[in-house]
Structure formats: structure tokens, C-alpha cells
């Protein structure tokens, strides 16, 4: 009998695995399609912009003949579909092209690589910090629900989410460096200069993690199994740690891969005030300079990151939470 049960559950698991695989493949295909549509759309839209951006800084001082010669040399007199086709041909070889304006004639991959590294490094540290601070904060608030630590925490979280971050980041930079010996600007070789950017980067996520952790825990605290555990006489602490916290952490897991991946996008505010040479604001920068190849490349990267992040998050959830079954949910759609 025991044997039969095992066999049954094994075959069920196998079926489940197939489902997961199928699901992954399907998701992957859809993701590729989304990427294709996004890139094509951006590519065409950028071609609708005025020509100034293609001609460098001196366009007003160029004569008509020179402008015409330049456009022809760049292939911009060709129809958009041809240009698009060339773009995809290069993309297929893993070549994102060269920047035109942001750093003239330099491979985009070469520009972006070190930036991603720095943003990811700081971002990962900030994320670690925010998890280490935010999760216990949320747990503490949930445990002391309605009492002053909870109220204080809520106030802190609401403030962080409500106040314009451009303002309080600058505030931190100006006042935290006064007399403390902390440098105002980031320096890759001096870890002490990383402190303030990391804290600034972490603050909003601390608020975020704290808020969600508290919510999930409070949610769990009302579940029947918690009542049962308490009725059984399990100590409050044990209930919290063993049951509530663990279960509440599961939904948090899902967001971690994408948050981690998104750190490579950098933070516009923080990186720009601390001179962190990362990705923050790069997209805006290249958009404003109309460096089309860079815009395409960045949109491609960010969209891919978004898709991969979601994807990993979902997979992770399936792995972490045994209750989730693709079959069940799939049918309810």
C-alpha cells in the first residue's frame, strides 16, 4: 500500500514537472515575442524623431550638402525596414552596435559592462541591507501590531514612501557628511564612500520590505493553523518564528530575483548625486541626447531583465512553496 502511494505521487510529480517545463517554454516564447514587439516599436518611434540627433553637436554650423552626405554615410536615407533588418542581423551576432553620441564610436557593450557591474554591486549590497533591516522591521511591527513600535514603523514607512525622494536623498548627502568625515562623492576604491549611497539606495526598499513583511505576517497570524498552534500551547515566539515568519517570507521570495536583477538599472537619484558611475539615469541621458543605438540597446536590456526577473521569481515560487500547483491554478483561469 505504501508502495502504491509512492508510485502514484511519483507519477503525479512527473506530470507536474512536465507541466512546469511546458509552462516555462510557453512563458519563454511569450517573453521573446514581447521583446521583439518592444524593440521594433522603439526602433520605429526613434526614427520619427527630427534629424538633429544623428548629426552631432555642431549641426547648426553644417551646410546642407554636408548634412546630406552625412545622412547618406550613416545609412539613414534607407527605408526604416531595411535599417531594422540590419539591426536584427547585428543583434543575432550579439552586437548591440556602437554609441553615436554618448561616447562616440565606442561599442555599447563596452560602455555598459562596467556600469552594470557598479550598479549591481551597490544595488546588491543595498538590497542585502534592506532585507536585513526591512524583514525584521516588518516582523517586529507585525508582532507588536497596534502598539508603538508598529505605529512608529508605519510612520517611518509612510514617510519614506510619501516624501519626494529627490529631496531627502540630497538632505542625507548634505547633512550626513558634515563633520562625520564621510566623503560626499562615491569613489570606487574607497569603500567608506559607499556607505551613504548604499543607505540611500536601501531606504526605500527597507520601507517596501517592511511594509510587505508586516502585511504577510499579519495575514498569516489570522490563519487557522496559527490559532491551532496557539491553542496547542506553542509559545508565541515559536509560533511567530516557526510558522508565521516562514510562511510570510514565501511571497517575498518571489520578488527577490527581479529586485536583484533590477539593481543593474541603477538608481537615477542616488547615482546622480553621489557620482556613482553606474547605470542610473543612463537611459534618460541617452534619450535626451538621442543616441538611438544606445536607447535601443538599453530598452532591450531592461525589458529582458524585467522578463527574466519575473520568470525566475515565478519559478522560485514553484520551487519554494509546495502548495503551488500549476495544474490547479491553470484551470481556474
Amino acid at each position: 500500500m505504501l508502495r502504491r502511494v509512492t508510485l502514484f505521487s511519483l507519477s503525479k510529480r512527473k506530470k507536474e514537472d512536465e507541466k512546469v517545463a511546458k509552462y516555462i517554454v510557453k512563458r519563454f516564447g511569450a517573453a521573446l515575442l514581447s521583446l521583439f514587439i518592444i524593440i521594433t516599436l522603439i526602433f520605429c518611434l526613434l526614427r520619427l524623431m527630427p534629424i538633429e540627433g544623428y548629426l552631432g553637436a555642431n549641426v547648426d554650423k553644417l551646410s546642407e550638402e554636408v548634412i546630406a552626405a552625412k545622412l547618406a554615410a550613416k545609412g539613414l536615407d534607407k527605408p526604416v525596414p531595411v535599417q531594422l533588418f540590419n539591426f536584427y542581423r547585428n543583434l543575432a551576432r550579439g552586437d548591440l552596435g556602437k554609441s553615436w553620441i554618448y561616447r562616440e564610436n565606442v561599442d555599447i557593450v563596452k560602455i555598459i559592462k562596467p556600469k552594470i557591474k557598479i550598479s549591481a554591486k551597490l544595488g546588491a549590497m543595498a538590497m542585502a541591507l534592506s532585507l536585513v533591516v526591512g524583514i525584521p522591521l516588518g516582523a517586529l511591527m507585525a508582532r507588536t501590531k497596534g502598539k508603538w513600535p508598529d505605529k512608529l514603523g508605519t510612520g517611518f514607512i509612510v514617510f519614506l514612501q510619501a516624501a519626494p525622494s529627490a529631496v531627502y536623498f540630497l538632505f542625507i548627502q548634505m547633512y550626513a557628511t558634515k563633520g562625520t568625515g564621510l566623503p560626499m562623492l562615491y569613489n570606487d576604491s574607497k569603500p567608506i564612500s559607499w556607505i551613504l549611497p548604499i543607505i540611500s539606495l536601501a531606504l526605500p526598499s527597507i520601507a517596501n520590505y517592511g511594509m510587505w513583511m508586516r502585511r504577510y505576517m499579519v495575514d498569516q497570524m489570522n490563519q487557522d493553523y496559527v490559532k491551532l498552534a496557539r491553542a496547542k500551547g506553542v509559545s508565541n515566539k515559536a509560533v511567530m518564528m516557526k510558522h508565521v515568519f516562514r510562511n510570510a517570507f514565501v511571497p517575498m521570495v518571489q520578488t527577490i530575483p527581479s529586485s536583484l536583477l533590477f539593481t543593474i538599472m541603477g538608481s537615477l537619484y542616488v547615482e546622480s548625486i553621489y557620482s556613482v558611475p553606474g547605470m542610473g539615469g543612463l537611459l534618460i541621458d541617452v534619450i535626451q541626447r538621442q543616441d538611438n543605438t544606445m536607447v535601443q540597446a538599453l530598452v532591450l536590456i531592461f525589458a529582458s531583465v524585467g522578463i527574466i526577473g519575473l520568470f525566475l521569481g515565478d519559478i522560485l515560487m514553484v520551487l519554494v512553496d509546495p502548495r503551488i500547483s500549476l495544474t490547479g491554478k491553470g484551470e481556474s483561469r
Partner: peptide, 26 residues
């Protein structure tokens, strides 16, 4: 569409519900 992600909004709402329930329970 992501299967497992609950709507962010739903979760916010559910917190309120849970709060109320817990209060009632207490």
C-alpha cells in the same frame, strides 16, 4: 500572465481584512 503573483492591490486589501479579523478575534 504571471500565475502566482497576487495582485498587489488585493494584498493591500487583504491586510485590512486580516487586521479586522484579528481585532475581532482578540
Amino acid at each position: 500572465m504571471s500565475l502566482f503573483r497576487k495582485g498587489a492591490v488585493m494584498e493591500k486589501a487583504s491586510e485590512g481584512m486580516a487586521d479586522q479579523l484579528e481585532k475581532a478575534l482578540r
